[in-house]
Amino acid sequence: MLSRVANSLYWMCRYIERAENIARFIDVNLNLLLDLPYDENEQWGPLVVTTGDNKLFENSYGEPDKDKVINFLTFDNNYHNSIISTLEKARENARSVREIISSEMWEQINKYYFFVKDASNLLEDHDNLYDFYYRIKLESHLFTGTMDTTMSHGEGWHFGRMGRLLERADKTSRILDVKYYILLPSVDLIGSPIDYIQWAALLKSASALEMYRKRFRRILPDKVADFLIMDSEFPRAIRYCLIHSQRSLRTITGTSFGTYKNAAERYLGKLSSELDYSQTDEIITVGLHEFLGRFQHDLNVVGNSIHETFFEVGK
């Protein structure tokens, strides 16, 4: 497969996944705020902080409030990680490999992109926002489903899946981190109903609430972390993402598990094994926020090594 094509498939899927997860971020906030007893605008700032692009936001918007943050993260063409920008890039990547992907996938990306592009007027009616972000998740799922059922599961598909799962691992870690930033009105409330409601909202944003209940039934903070980080069966859990992205990687290269022949295999294998043999209480001891920060860093290293190994061959 052409290096350029592999690169485009990888990023096409990453961007589609990214768009979906931005919708999830906003969704978790919308959910959380419904139950919070105080001025909701205070809670939109932290959301921008989790993206790491708060400087950028301040420069063009100033003080955060709901409308500004939603506009920034969803419709802002000048912000490279807004939903519309990521979809634009997904589409551009798809366009450059449209003879590789199925026509159905291309049609879906097109419809998805124009749906968001035409929706900028939604902001005026906040009741529609829930439906809107729900629809975004759905459109992404539709893309993934279309890809799984209409494209051969060969090298290109595996590059795509690898991109999607690495992106998802990163974003699940960030969704989990939102709770760190959402301040409770007072320390007394840790462990209170509001605290639980927040954890439940967070699970819901990762579409994980129901699956979590089947496994742990009661909502406990460390179990939530355990589920979203360590579960090997829930498809948005970090460990699931790493296991399966590693499968894709090794299907592409043909190298067996437990060994490595290039940087991509080494770093992804290392990160994945680390999780395989970790326990949640260790993580909680280090501090969840600190753990997630380091994880995101390590994942970036994996991403860079994939670029070196496959996309920049001969350069």
Partner: peptide, 30 residues
Amino acid sequence: SFLAQQMGVELVQGSDLVVTDGYVFMQTTK
């Protein structure tokens, strides 16, 4: 891209191709 897709062949850009040893090659992941 339509024609490449319909024929099932690679669509390449100039930067995907290199000339070495008297032949034209494309740069792939392998």
